Computed example of a mutant assay.
Amino acid sequence: MAFLSSRRKRARLAPELDDHDLGRLLKSLLATTRTGTIATTDLCVAQMSRLLDQEPGDWDRRTHRIGVLADYLTDSHLPRSWAAREPRNASALLLNAWTQLARARSQGRPDDTADATDICLRAAELAPEDPTPWVALLGVARLQRWEQSQVFGVWNEVLVRDRWNREAYLSMLGYLTPEESGSRMQVLEFVDALRARMPANAPCAATELTAQVFQYQSVLDRGGFEALVARNHWSHAMAADALDRVVQTWAQPGFLRHAKALADLNVLAYALMAADRRREARPVFEALGVTVTAWPWRAGGDPLEEFDQAQRRATAGM
Rank of each mutant, 00 (worst) to 15 (best):
L137H: 01
L138D: 01
L138R: 01
G139V: 10
G139I: 08
G139F: 09
V140I: 15
A141N: 03
R142I: 04
R142E: 10
L143W: 02
R145Q: 13
R145T: 09
W146P: 00
Q148K: 11
S149Y: 09
S149M: 07
Q150T: 05
W155R: 05
N156S: 05
E157F: 08
L159Y: 01
V160A: 14
D162V: 10
R166P: 01
S171C: 07
M172F: 07
L173I: 07
G174N: 15
G174Q: 13
Y175H: 13
T177M: 07
P178M: 12
P178L: 12
E180T: 11
E180G: 02
M185F: 10
M185H: 14
D192T: 15
A196H: 15
N201M: 06
P203M: 05
T207D: 10
E208Q: 05
E208T: 03
L209F: 14
T210M: 05
T210A: 08
A211Y: 07
A211L: 07
Q212K: 14
F214T: 00
Y216L: 03
Q217R: 11
S218K: 06
V219S: 01
V219H: 02
R222F: 09
G223K: 12
G223L: 12
F225G: 00
E226N: 04
E226G: 01
A227S: 14
A227F: 11
A227H: 12
L228E: 06
V229Y: 11
A230F: 07
N232W: 15
W234P: 05
S235T: 15
M238D: 14
A240Q: 14
A240P: 12
V246E: 05
V247I: 13
T249S: 11
W250C: 01
W250M: 00
Q252T: 05
Q252R: 06
P253I: 13
P253T: 11
P253L: 10
F255V: 06
F255T: 06
H258P: 01
A259K: 02
